[in-house]
Design a protein around this nucleic acid. Structure first.
Lengths: 233, 233
DNA sequence: CGATAGATTGAATATACTCAACGGTAGTGG
DNA sequence: CCACTACCGTTGAGTATATTCAATCTATCG
């Protein structure tokens, strides 16, 4: 099954960009591929981090469950990124759970191969740290937004980010490319599904978005940018 | 001036723990030391990240300033940690500003030495990534707290963390070891100085803390833990 | 001693949450 | 193919939490 994978699938991705064809073949030969149904777990928080993954297709939701029982969605990961790289950061267990937000396809490698990848493949490490850096940066932005922005601005920013990361053009606008509920957005932005529903309804009335069950199409991105920004026009 | 620095100062710190005395000497010889007055900048957001630092003494506040003008305090860094390691994560500028929260002492190295440190010194890289991992983890916790916890719980958790990281025993309790204002805490927890003031007043009335201008002593840590937890006793 | 930054507290207000009821859509099984 | 069910979504009414506005007080420093 892995043999069927074309090198060209992963060759252009950041971590492998600088590698030669033979190296990519080497890497692919050590991978196992896996399909994940929508809603299924890729890995679970607290489990032994015995693999790391490359998301080939679909979207993965990273979720943290709190002592209290509520869950928080930390981020959505678009195709082409490495996930579950806990071990690279000196952890032996996954710090969060990863769920397939849509049907997803991954490649997986045993964690013990990580050190070799970093040593052997020029640019693999560099690109990975760059990814971690962007993630940190993103998280800092999120923190700042949570600390200072009103709910409407946070929700607007959240929708915009998903559109930017995974948006696909459809007639009349850009659609978020995976199923997403009001409740999901609430768990990302620290609010309730009621408030999200009210906001989306209001925006729909204003012609900024259109939404059907589990789908959101942004019809006026620029206006959403305004809503997410400083002045709440 | 650098010559005066004793190797034993940095030898036990995580990034240098596994190094030999001669290697530590090598590293120290390339460092410049600097004293920072309370409130002064160690580095500024957006600047060319031409150095990285080791905080030897004091506490550094990492601050993000938003387009809107408000600032958010992302974290406090206790002595012994590396800061300004932006370049290690593939950035050419600092993503946030660092201010001395108390008088502070740092060692600084030019960024171009980073790659060499990582290559040459066994364990330096590993320990650094572990630190980054902990930082990420911490940030995820913070996000989750901001998303789900009420203000009182967030403020309680924030005070507790500062006590854990930098607390020093004094008569009657444990004191946060650097000057900290109500306003500072508000900028960390995403609330207002008024609310923080009210909370601290209430806690003081309940005998959980004692505070004077810019100083907070926690007299009943266990009760503060309860306040930060699930059930808001 | 005056000036400035930090802290406290009351009153009014607003934002977003909770509670509650209901409508709609998709999937399942007889 | 239809009924049933579970999940998603909407909307109204009431409320609570924390903010905003405002006034006052108190340390600390030069």
């Amino acid at each position: 099954m892995v043999r069927k994978l074309d090198e060209s699938l992963i060759a252009p991705l950041p971590p492998f960009r600088r590698l030669e064809r033979t190296q990519i073949r080497e890497i692919l030969d050590q991978a196992t591929s896996r399909r994940h149904d929508e809603g299924s777990e890729v890995f679970r928080s607290g489990e032994e981090a015995d693999r790391f993954f490359l998301l080939l297709d679909g979207v993965v939701r990273v979720v943290r469950i709190l002592p209290g029982g509520d869950q928080v969605i930390l981020r959505h990961i678009p195709p082409g990124q490495l996930i579950g790289i806990a071990s690279a950061l000196g952890r032996s267990t996954y710090p969060a759970s990863a769920l397939a937000a849509s049907e997803a396809l991954t490649l997986a490698w045993p964690t013990r191969l990580w050190a070799g990848f970093v040593q052997r493949y020029e640019g693999f490490a560099t690109e990975t740290w760059a990814t971690v850096g962007r993630r940190l940066d993103q998280l800092h932005d999120d923190m700042a937004a949570m600390a200072t922005q009103a709910v409407e601005q946070r929700v607007a920013a959240c929708v915009l980010r998903m559109v930017n990361q995974t948006g696909r053009p459809v007639e009349g606008g850009i659609e978020i490319a995976f199923p997403i509920t009001r409740s999901n957005i609430a768990e990302m932005t620290g609010t309730t599904l009621h408030t999200v529903s009210r906001l989306l309804s209001a925006w729909e009335k204003d012609g900024v978005v259109e939404s059907r069950r589990k789908h959101i199409v942004v019809t006026a991105p620029h206006r959403l940018v305004l809503l997410s920004g400083a002045s709440g026009g």
